[in-house]
């Protein structure tokens, strides 16, 4: 497993997710702000691509994306609060 790529990809998901968290609240009170809407569209696509690639290579972030083979892997650690995750 390429740990550096894993960390880089994860950091990318974290950053783009936060942009969406911030835009979501802004758009709740500014629903017609075209600049913010464009920013949302752009960032959402980048995040989706990163999540897809991360899930494929290193496992799911969301329980809907668990790849079921011979065993259930969702509840295997490490969990986010343990740090270095």
């Amino acid at each position: 497993m390429d740990v550096r790529n894993k960390e880089k990809l994860f950091a990318h998901i974290q950053a783009t997710s936060f942009v969406l968290d911030e835009l979501r609240l802004f758009l709740d009170t500014h629903p017609r702000d075209q600049e913010a809407l464009e920013h949302w569209r752009r960032t959402e696509k980048i995040r989706n691509d990163a999540v897809k690639e991360y899930t494929k290579c290193y496992g799911p972030i969301s329980a809907y994306d668990v790849d079921v083979e011979d065993r259930w892997t969702w509840a295997e650690g490490p969990w986010p609060w343990e740090g270095r995750c």
């Binding site: 994860f10 998901i13 974290q14 799911p60 972030i61 969301s62 986010p80 609060w81 740090g83």
Partner: peptide
């Protein structure tokens, strides 16, 4: 739904 990540890393 839960996502396996913190909003800000600790």
């Amino acid at each position: 739904t839960y996502e396996k990540r913190l909003q800000y890393p600790v």
